[in-house]
Design a protein around this nucleic acid. Sequence first.
DNA 1: GTGTTTGCAAAGTGTTTGCAATTTA
DNA 2: TAAATTGCAAACACTTTGCAAACAC
Lengths: 137, 137
Amino acid sequence: MQIPEIDEVTIARLRKAGLRPTRRRRELAHLLFSSCKEAVTAEGLHSFAQRNGVKVSLATVYGTLHSFCDAGMVREVSIDSGRYFDINPDNHQYFYFEDERRLVGVTEAETGLKVMPPLPEGRRISRVDVVVRLRRD
Amino acid sequence: MQIPEIDEVTIARLRKAGLRPTRRRRELAHLLFSSCKEAVTAEGLHSFAQRNGVKVSLATVYGTLHSFCDAGMVREVSIDSGRYFDINPDNHQYFYFEDERRLVGVTEAETGLKVMPPLPEGRRISRVDVVVRLRRD
DNA sequence: GTGTTTGCAAAGTGTTTGCAATTTA
DNA sequence: TAAATTGCAAACACTTTGCAAACAC
């Protein structure tokens, strides 16, 4: 966890989100944003951290992920009772590879899908999640 | 739980799904299909059963709901780490009332929404879930 | 210096397992 | 009667809490 210039990017990202760039946040944000193409679970990020020499307990990973989530840096998606954190909070549509339990965000442009159903009275959309669950042919 | 003619409907429904119409299944299926307009949680069905004089443990409710699910009678949907069972397995689209944690199925016709994204190779759609999350105005 | 964050053990929550007793066909 | 199902306590997996120590500003 000593890659100065990348760290600057990470620090800027944290500050922009209104979070103090503490050591843990820098380490985890760096791992998350520089190496994760797809959504991770807390457990997944934890073991990824271990493998990269970042010693941190699972509880701390949870706490840190939640702070990222509250700050709008990541987006939480719940599939089959598993909780994934997507590094792109603008994703609203996903491919879920059922056999591998892998969740990959896709943009609205990629699916050509616009969701705008008629709403119940007195309510507005908080968010719309589309999960396309895939299995092998 | 002694409404003979409705019970016949429930028994038929269970048989059609390939399940033995045992007492528990009849009781829970009857409660579920005759009184639930929206998706329930295991906990919700359990307390609904208690209130209706059906004494059954939560673990049994879980087991029974899973047997219904495996038989295609209900559909499981996961939101914010909560697990809901929708009595209409053909629903694929939902309104989720965030403040009340209430999940209501809507048909494709009601949203006018058809999902058909381009798929990764070697994969086919298992199912597509759309969850429109609502908050108060 | 002060308010924020960390760290992790322990507690909490929701779900599943195991298996003897019961029920169904 | 043989196979399926029940019932629920105990086990389990995942997540959150609590709070003293460390840190950022």
